[in-house]
Simulated scan of single mutants.
Amino acid sequence: MGEQEFLWEPAKYVEFGDHRNRPFLDLTSRIGAAAPRAVVDLGCGPGNLTATLSARWPGASVLGIDSSAAMVAEAQKLATPHDGVASAAASPHSAPGLAFARGDIADWHPGPDTDVVVSNAALQWVPGHLELMSGWLAELRPGAWLGVQVPGNFGAPSHMLMRELAASQRWRRQLDGVLRHDDAVAEPGDYLELLLRGGLRADVWETTYNQLLPGENPVLEWVRGTGLRPVLAALGSDSAEFEREYSALLAQAYPRGEHGTIFPFRRIFMVGEKQ
């Protein structure tokens, strides 16, 4: 069990920063921890959102973990220097107690001082994450908080068209087994049951953000930063041909309007405090 491994591009991932940041902020605003000792962000990406946790809880030790070497390298520009003194290369947004490390979410376990665990748009990449979360809940101390957000849009045209094209005669041999969807995420009720069984006072909800994206065929640009990554990695030099076919399908499914392209994006949120 572990995260899928393929090349992430931090610059591409943050291209739609406002839209990608909002679910994280909506999630963490519901976490009621007052003065946590240790805060962990699992699947921290380029670290910009992990830094907001350090700003919110300046007395906490905040650690961001990600499996991507490129993401961690970018995130470490925000980390606190080991000697506690800002270096010339450090970002002005660096925060005390902020650190980043490369690691697999599936190998992580909460420590005795872990008071807040956050995972934003990462667990969908981890097969068997429900069992993984159940283990975390058993290990978290009373009073600790868990906040998780996963995308709930695997039935949207953006993903259905990608899967259908991948299963076509032209691409099925190269892409067989590359795209997961049936077991990528559960439904809100399943997550609520999981948190309640784990002894949490839980709040689970879903939101569909109707995102207005600028530019030509921006949905393609969006998925290039996330869901299309495993396809591109698997196809290598053939990826441009797949993209051309997929781009034409997306342009029909998400036509550009007078003000831009509307891209509905459903997300599932869960927050709870261990009782």
Rank of each mutant, 00 (worst) to 15 (best):
I65W: 04
T80E: 15
L53E: 10
S61Y: 09
A60I: 06
H82M: 13
S67P: 00
G64Y: 02
A69S: 15
E74Q: 15
S54G: 15
K77H: 14
A79P: 01
Q76N: 14
S61W: 03
H82P: 13
A55M: 12
L63P: 03
A79I: 04
A75N: 10
T80S: 14
S61L: 13
A69Y: 00
S61D: 13
L53C: 09
A60V: 08
D83S: 12
A73D: 12
L63G: 01
S54Y: 00
E74N: 10
A73G: 12
I65L: 15
I65S: 09
A70P: 00
G59N: 05
I65M: 14
L53A: 06
H82C: 11
G64T: 01
L78F: 10
A69K: 10
P81I: 05
L53G: 09
W57L: 11
A70V: 02
G64D: 08
S68Y: 10
S67Y: 00
L63M: 13
M71S: 06
P81W: 01
S54F: 00
S68R: 09
T80R: 13
A79R: 03
D83P: 07
S68Q: 08
Q76C: 14
A70N: 08
K77D: 08
S54E: 02
S61E: 14
S67I: 13
S61M: 12
S68N: 08
D83T: 10
S54Q: 00
R56G: 01
G64E: 07
D83W: 03
D83F: 06
L63A: 05
V62S: 01
V62G: 03
G59P: 01
A75W: 05
A79Q: 09
M71C: 08
A55P: 02
E74Y: 02
E74S: 13
A69D: 14
A51Q: 12
Q76V: 04
A70H: 05
A73H: 06
L63Q: 11
P58G: 04
A51P: 04
T80Y: 01
H82L: 15
T80L: 10
T80N: 05
T80H: 02
S67D: 01
S68V: 06
G64W: 02
D66S: 12
D83I: 08
L78Y: 01
P81T: 06
A51T: 11
S54L: 00
A55Q: 14
H82S: 14
H82A: 15
A75Y: 09
E74W: 04
M71T: 00
G59D: 08
S68G: 11
